[in-house]
């Protein structure tokens, strides 16, 4: 079961901070992040890659995106 970070309605840098916090917990190899702006989508992807995660999948969801990141 992947952890889910719901960062919808929040502006940068909040979605990135939440993603980094979840990664730091170190409990999940797969994390799903929900965001609602293109900026958050780009920045969350950068944050994940900087921590050794790969952006596995980005799919539109509602008004935003569902980003799945996985630890290789």
């Amino acid at each position: 079961m992947a952890a889910t970070v719901d960062a919808r309605g929040l502006s940068c840098p909040q979605p990135v901070i939440m993603t980094l916090d979840e990664i730091k917990k170190g409990q999940d190899k797969e994390i799903i992040i929900l965001v609602d702006t293109d900026t958050s989508k780009e920045n969350v992807s950068r944050a994940a890659e900087s921590q050794g995660f790969a952006v596995h999948n980005v799919t539109p969801e509602g008004e935003g995106y569902r980003i799945t990141i996985t630890k290789g």
């Binding site: 990135v16 900026t39 950068r46 890659e49």
Partner: peptide, 12 residues
């Protein structure tokens, strides 16, 4: 910081 995702919306 850019690599970590701290890029302001204006830059995009």
């Amino acid at each position: 910081f850019a690599n970590m995702g701290f890029v302001p919306a204006g830059a995009y």
